[in-house]
Design a protein around this nucleic acid. Structure first.
Lengths: 251, 251
DNA sequence: CGGTACGTTGAACAATGTCAAGCGTAGTGG
DNA sequence: CCACTACGCTTGACATTGTTCAACGTACCG
């Protein structure tokens, strides 16, 4: 917390147009922009600006007017809400290619923070709406992404409401592994960019229970903790069996 | 369960076009159809067919090919998933005007059953896609409804992950009350159409804990149980305070 | 008038959360 | 370079909470 606060004030957030051309963007095929043919991608480049975040830096806050939307190009964000008394629920993590602003109309319904240093493409809502009018395929793409987010959120409801702690953690590790694979990274030694507190607030547990669940999975030979933040999954199948739901059939 | 099974076989599900004209449909203003001007609503009436369900009758099953989409005109549905071992999570209840199929691409990602006798407008996906091409406002309306469902699902994650049982129940009662009001019904004596088991599977609890939470709210003078399925809320504000999140500020 | 399903309640038990201490690592300053 | 501090993670002991199991009451249905 102290680190967060101090870093928030020390340096201005970078906002430049210096990011590499959209045409050779690493997340092009996964992001909204996949809806635009190469010929039109220049349009997007024109209205886009790049934005960097330091770890734990706040990007948008619940209740704020939605003036911008974003595509994450590198790093990781957490989407969360808080109760008046400080309890926090992380509803999901955003990975490169993910879009920030899918659920919101005029105001952000949740806050978003960088988990690790991150870079985003930013678009003003006005520009984006303009682009959607000219390229209807953008609307379809956004709608598709929203449907996907809705399916994921509902699957999360199952995880939160009906899985035991060890099952929750197993499903979380499989999710991370699956996500890494989807982005062309190695899917097995899974790297945890987020803290135990983040994991706890995502899975509806305490950090102690998260820690104990790691130990249980390790004791049962299902995972190996290479270091605190690196998990080697011994057998995807057995871990999936523990997770209760067959992650492979979904997502 | 026995009742469900027997009733499922006894009578054929009605499928007629006999429902009153769309133009004087009770849920017109809340449903997808609100996107169509009066002049075009005839188009919708042409491709629509009516479908009735008895209590506990299954409408669609997780994994089935999505051939039809629906608008609920009366009654109530539950949307749910199940784990291999029988654990169930209800991700939400559908009320008149709600659309079934928001989250799905080609297959239904969840099952849907009638909680009480229900009537729906059914559309074949092909017809609906055709209509969307001719009336782009339909796409925008569906997108808007999907965003709303996503916000609701994420708020549910907070309820499931971070609220205590009594808080969960309080937020649930407020949700029902809010929903009734939205549909022009009295918002205070709240009628529970669903069983304790449904409530438990929605809130991630057991029926016993649900029952005890009802008792606690009653003992604290926050609600009054007129009968098992009718709850009088003594003070919306105090109940909202118990719920932790101010339901009024959201949804 | 039984029988069945549903809801409530109680008591014992198991699981998770809470509180507190300890460990290891990383970063800081002497 | 080393001690010191701070932070995050783990672990243990304990308290709280929810679950399980069982009994009871009630309403509905045959």
């Amino acid at each position: 917390m102290i680190a967060t606060t101090s870093s928030t004030h020390s340096i201005m957030t970078k906002r430049t147009k210096s990011c590499g051309a959209c045409s050779d963007c690493a997340v092009r095929s996964m992001a909204v922009c996949a809806a635009l043919p190469d010929a039109e991608i220049g349009e997007f480049e024109r209205i886009m600006s790049s934005q960097s975040l330091r770890a734990n830096e706040l990007l948008v806050e619940e209740g704020d007017e939605k003036k911008k939307v974003f595509t994450l190009t590198s790093g990781m964000l957490r989407l969360f809400s808080m109760l008046p008394d400080g309890r926090r629920q992380i509803s999901g993590f955003l990975f490169p290619g993910d879009y920030l602003g899918l659920a919101d109309d005029d105001t952000y319904s949740q806050s978003a923070e960088a988990v690790i240093p991150s870079v985003l493409c930013a678009f003003s809502v006005a520009d984006m709406e303009d682009a959607m009018e000219r390229f209807p395929s953008l609307i379809l793409r956004l709608h598709e992404m929203t449907r996907h987010a809705l399916r994921q959120s509902r699957e999360n409801q199952m995880v939160l409401g009906r899985l035991a702690p060890v099952e929750k953690l197993a499903s979380f590790l499989l999710l991370l592994s699956h996500n890494a694979k989807k982005r062309g990274e190695p899917d097995n030694p899974v790297h945890l960019d987020m803290s135990r507190t983040d994991i706890a607030d995502y899975l509806g547990l305490t950090i102690e229970t998260v820690s104990r669940s790691f130990t249980k999975l390790r004791t049962q030979g299902l995972i190996q903790l290479i270091d605190t933040n690196t998990v080697e999954i011994q057998s995807m199948r057995s871990l999936a069996a523990v997770a209760g739901l067959d992650i492979f059939n979904k997502i």
